[in-house]
Design a protein around this nucleic acid. Sequence first.
DNA 1: CGGGATCGTCGAAGCGATTCAACACGCTAG
DNA 2: CTAGCGTGTTGAATCGCTTCGACGATCCCG
Lengths: 337, 337
Amino acid sequence: MATIDDVAKTAGVSASTVSYVLSGKRPISGPTRARVERAIEKLGYRPHAGARALASARTNVIALMAPLRVGVNVPVIMQFVTGVVTRARDFEHDVLLLTQDDVSGLDRVTGGSMVDALVMMDIEADDPRVPLVAAAKQPAVLVGLPEDPEGLSCVDLDFEAAGRLAVRHLAATGHTDVALIGSPPEVLRRHTSYAERLMRGLRSQAQASDVTVRVEACDSSPSGASQAVDTLLATAPDTTGIIVHNEGALPHVLSRLAERGIAVGTDMAVVAVCPKDVALAQRIPMTSIDLPAEDIGRVAVDMVMTRLDGDQPSETRLLAPVLTERESSTPGPAADG
Amino acid sequence: MATIDDVAKTAGVSASTVSYVLSGKRPISGPTRARVERAIEKLGYRPHAGARALASARTNVIALMAPLRVGVNVPVIMQFVTGVVTRARDFEHDVLLLTQDDVSGLDRVTGGSMVDALVMMDIEADDPRVPLVAAAKQPAVLVGLPEDPEGLSCVDLDFEAAGRLAVRHLAATGHTDVALIGSPPEVLRRHTSYAERLMRGLRSQAQASDVTVRVEACDSSPSGASQAVDTLLATAPDTTGIIVHNEGALPHVLSRLAERGIAVGTDMAVVAVCPKDVALAQRIPMTSIDLPAEDIGRVAVDMVMTRLDGDQPSETRLLAPVLTERESSTPGPAADG
DNA sequence: CGGGATCGTCGAAGCGATTCAACACGCTAG
DNA sequence: CTAGCGTGTTGAATCGCTTCGACGATCCCG
């Protein structure tokens, strides 16, 4: 491989000049720049990433911790990841992927200066990674909300507001008995923050809107979904509105309702909290609160990049939920006639 | 951050000794090793990845190109990725994720010595990345089969054998009119190798077993799947066995069959080509040919690691397909009575 | 008891970039 | 006419590690 010295030699300049042409940190005259660029082209020169990292203390790589835990919805994760990877490229950064949720990987990439910054997904209320990453020299952004952010920046959909919004929507369309079909029990057991925040919003708005809300955990299998539906209808037969916050279970919930002869949209209003494409890929276009996974990934990168040099204060960004009415929810019983 | 010199100083040895303790490339006496290790521990020393890469020409990172193209099944991709990431850790390597299928990323990580090796997924028959990666100084393994591998190593499920196996199974259980519900049209248009190989196997065995086989492309949406089923049953009403090679469409195909009152397993035998967990997550446990995505990812890493120093010759590894009978396929009409 | 092998450690030379201080040059202003 | 300035370029130091050759000490065997 050609080195910067080779380029310098064939362009008839010094290595530092080549470096400045590349980085633009000092003015270089037009002719010189042109000669250098020609030399680079000719030799097919690519700066050595390691050498660069050593000299400049910048790797142009960010770490993305995306633990693949049981119960997480893989396609949604991948939407995040896509957002992160593509946005990172806008900042000339590549992405190092860590899928294990152990803490050693964090230590390695952080301590070894393998990355300039970190984005961590699937944050739990009391996440063991948080103190470690707070102590790291690299800036970090958490996707989700830990109990104690320790001065770290966070970003996520405002699930609490989403919960309120969903209930408000159902209440406004005349429903008084609503239910949540939510995350798998494993997710709840881990105290993954989004699940709890949604419920909090749900409950507070239920009280405010004088609506009862029943909660069912639900794993993503067909049988799990059927069971959740059956239990719900057995214990709360007056339910006329369901909020589904479980991408994997959603199609099965709809199937089960269909099997039981319950027409979604007329007999039963259903609001999904999920990415738009999931909402549209069901048998009926779903009224949904969009989970803008790719956006969130993008924002996470924006935030972490801002903090690369300037010591921006930490900040928490909760994206406002947007509810889009589609065919799965229509005015409920109280609004009838 | 502490440097190797700091460690050397506090341990009372030279930096090279510390390095040898870490790498084990020269014998170090017990007491010395112990002193060094204590110093490392005490200072929380982590070798600087960039410096290491510069000096040793090893980054301990491999690149994973996983283009997220339309029509690919994301959960399956993630199974590959998981296999790659976890196996890479066994070799002390981390994974740099490239999701864009452009060629510039390849160039960057390759030319800039950011990685020691490459794993490339979703290979097309005439993939533009292949010549580039063949010219790179890093070893590479392709997941899939290009038309001309140019001396590169490849790994994949033996889809041609899978096609034969599926037909043989159906033929053996008495079916004479079978059909494939296959990949989305985009995938076929790209000449993604697995789709074509499966069809080749299907056709050759159909001829050998004196069975007719009809082929339907099928996108992964509910409507696409329904349409594929409807078209199939309209144009080939005698069909009694279906092979589904499309993870996304599979549940919808089954739903549609159910809607039309066709009982899977008795009226219609269905064989799926998909990961085992997908086969088991359907309304009926599916007879399936396992797509061992995670295994393939692991094997890809094994192969590429073998080629890191030794100049092992290139090799193509096609994993033998395994068919597991479950409830979705039972003896067909000719075997009845 | 001497000579060669073996073992453990060290010093120094890179690896390939970045960046700072310094310098040469041509201008303008005084 | 010169001091002073800005512009464009350079040389050298530096980043933190690996690795090669060398060297003293210890060991074994004849």
